[in-house]
Design a protein around this nucleic acid. Structure first.
Lengths: 293, 293
DNA sequence: CACGCCCGATACCGCGCGGGTATCGTCCCT
DNA sequence: AGGGACGATACCCGCGCGGTATCGGGCGTG
């Protein structure tokens, strides 16, 4: 109804390409909605901007100067956004990550966020296994990309994804080539343990996932790396959400009867820093979006 | 996701009012979506624009210069639209109307269209009762606001509304104070007739609505005015869609068993004049919108 | 000090619009 | 005459925006 920058962006693309199909590709969309949008723009203005003939598309006289003005407007808008981004640039955003960094979605996320706020200094901080909040409460990080469940008092959380939980085995383990395992099959193994100081809900979650039966307790691990090394050197079993890349010599096998974890982005409930909100927003649409909390 | 003028319009309104409720009222919307939009804008930019304290809203330093730039951008956009409207201004749009001009929706429509395209010369032309297309095919009018049904070959149509059909009686008619009538009750009256030359479907529609039985044929009428006068002077009965205002001395009574008409906007199928499209678009949203054809 | 009001934030819902796929019509070029 | 290129049309679906209802906090007032 009212003039919007989107319409102008579309128009500019077509005006520059003089070809609806190519323009649509440049805009990362398909041709029909683009055609429709241009017609709507023309209807809105009450004037024809393009001369469509089967032998190509041409600008009408009105289209010519309209393009120049539109281009100027778009450039000005871009400068405005850049200026605002620069103003936010003084800030530093520290994001805590529980995952080992091999998560494809996570890297896409920080990449997307960095290119949206090029001037912001994004610090990524690997979290301690004992604290899934990555020190949110103490202010150590501004926002955490982590796994549930944990104590959420004073923390806002937005669910992003649900990951199946599986076992990390040495590749030469007799069970390592199985497609899927049940907990009972691993009942006689040694499992790593979380430190006593760990978040209660968090600890309870992983302990509940531990198979019943005569279980020999494995070493206490503090980081993801330690956990993986424990598997390699001690023959313990590691529990983990679905993992992207794993160091050589280790294999991930899904567990059929282990409750899944949820990947969440979390931030201190009191903070309403726009950068934090922006990060959450980008996260929500980088992942397949989820329902908030 | 991308910066849009709407966000800037919202921001500017709040920046000028320094009060979300008032700004929302100025924007013809309610406060919650406005608050949300502003927060999203801030998140998008990664910077706070307002200082919210319970004792009022204030601009942050960033917000101050952002407002100036945004204001400039919006003004430039407005000028662009005005310029485009002026370019279309050479054109004249002739609108044919079958209704007698007392239709509230119709006048709202041309009003809305005129203020969207202030430079366009809008000519309204009352149609002949014989031709519901108002001379669309002959190019007499560019677009017609009329009633169905009629021969639609070569004509594009968009349905806008459905109107009940009723009888127009003299106010001193014994039946004039009834809430609703059935056709049979009027079987012995004289009915006006359409000229032989009228559109066949159109003529058939009104004839079909005519009550069966020993019917005395009334005068042939060519315009709505003639039709109303015929009721006044000759005691004939007029058939009509729901009418807004009627001249004094006449009364409209709905007919329970007459098939309703549809109000449509119609234009020559070959024309793809942006102004015509614009008119249709405005019509569709002025009325309660309908499904196209 | 409690109660009530003002105002922005949040929760949740419904619908229109923007984007998708499938298909058509038309012109051009063999 | 046939096929390919390209814009237009038809139809469908999911998301975003705007709506209503409600919350929460801060201040004024009796």
């Amino acid at each position: 109804m009212d003039l919007e920058l989107r319409s102008l962006r579309y128009f500019a693309a077509v005006a520059e390409e003089l070809h609806f199909g190519r323009a649509a590709r440049r805009l990362h969309m398909t041709q029909p909605p683009l055609s429709r949008a241009i017609r709507q723009l023309e209807a809105d203005l009450g004037v024809a901007l393009f001369e469509r003939s089967p032998s190509g598309v041409a600008l009408t006289p009105v289209g010519v100067w309209f393009y120049q003005d539109a281009r100027a407007l778009l450039d000005q808008a871009d400068r405005l956004r850049a200026k605002a981004a620069a103003a936010a640039g003084a800030a530093t955003l520290t994001v805590g990550m529980l995952s080992d960094g091999s998560d494809a979605d996570a890297s896409r996320l920080v990449k997307a966020f960095r290119e949206r706020h090029p001037h912001v200094d994004v610090q990524v901080r690997e979290a301690d296994l004992a604290d899934p909040t990555c020190g949110l409460r103490s202010g150590l990080v501004d926002v955490a990309l982590t796994h549930g469940p944990f104590d959420e008092t004073g923390i806002s959380v937005r669910r992003l994804r649900t990951d199946p939980v599986g076992a990390v085995l040495r590749s030469d383990d007799p069970l390592a080539d199985r497609k899927v395992l049940r907990l009972a099959e691993l009942a006689d193994r040694r499992w790593f343990r979380l430190p006593e100081s760990a978040d209660p809900l968090w600890r309870a979650f992983w302990n509940a996932t531990t198979p019943q039966g005569p279980m020999r307790e494995g070493p206490i691990v503090r980081t993801v790396q330690e956990c993986l090394q424990a598997v390699l050197w001690n023959g313990t079993i590691g529990l983990a959400p679905r993992v992207g890349a794993l160091p050589p010599g280790l294999t991930f096998v899904p567990l059929a009867d282990a409750p899944p974890t949820t990947v969440v982005v979390a931030w201190a409930g009191s903070r309403d820093d726009p950068l934090v909100r922006s990060f959450v927003r980008v996260a929500a649409q980088t992942y397949g979006a989820g329902t908030g909390s």
